[in-house]
């Protein structure tokens, strides 16, 4: 008996989610190895893992982007981090996906603007959590640096994502997978 088309689509979808999650975890790990000290404060990262969030958001939809981000945060947290790093990453990731979704759906911005805003909101999400958990410290002094850093890294990530999406590897217009991501999300 032949498997139904819906089943096949579902399994292809699962495979894509798995590939994107793995990519996201690996890019997240790789950027831990790259020390970025151009802004003079420790802990500023390029946000390469956000490439995957962007691809998922543009080709699959917000629910998938959110799920993949959550999986990455938990995986990296279990392997290299602690409860706080999970909390920080999750807050940053969630806020950035929400902001990127709003900007993308507004239709007025290209992937560069969406990504830059995502980078900034990621850093702001982390700053808010830091302010709540480590209250009393004058952390808001970092805000301008974090905003500019998020913006520049976001533009960079947007350019990379744009190239990857245009190649059609994960694209719904891409060869062979045109029917995978239609519909529900």
């Amino acid at each position: 008996m032949m498997r139904s088309r819906a089943d096949k689509n579902a399994s292809v979808k699962v495979a894509y989610i798995a590939v994107l999650t793995a990519l996201s975890a690996v890019t997240g790990y790789v950027e831990l190895l790259i020390p970025v000290n151009i802004f003079g404060i420790p802990g500023v990262k390029l946000g390469l893992a956000n490439i995957v969030s962007l691809i998922a958001l543009y080709t699959m939809g917000p629910v998938y982007a959110f799920g993949i981000m959550t999986a990455r945060v938990i995986l990296l947290g279990l392997m290299f981090g602690n409860v706080y790093s999970v909390l920080f990453s999750f807050a940053g990731g969630t806020l950035s996906i929400i902001v990127m979704l709003i900007l993308k759906n507004s239709g007025g911005f290209t992937i560069y603007g969406v990504s830059a805003a995502g980078g900034v909101s990621h850093n702001m999400g982390q700053l808010i959590i830091a302010f709540i958990t480590l209250g009393g410290l004058k952390l808001y002094y970092y805000a301008p640096v974090l905003i500019i850093a998020g913006e520049i890294c976001g533009l960079f990530v947007g350019a990379l994502s744009s190239v990857i999406i245009d190649r059609g590897i994960f694209n719904k217009e891409g060869k062979g997978n045109d029917r995978i991501f239609k519909g529900d999300c």
Binding site: G108, F109, T110, G113, A116, A117, I147, E151
Partner: peptide, 17 residues
Amino acid sequence: MRKLNRNDILLITVITA
């Protein structure tokens, strides 16, 4: 590779400002 549009540049300017 796509280009930035006017809204993107406006957004970036506003964030920087």
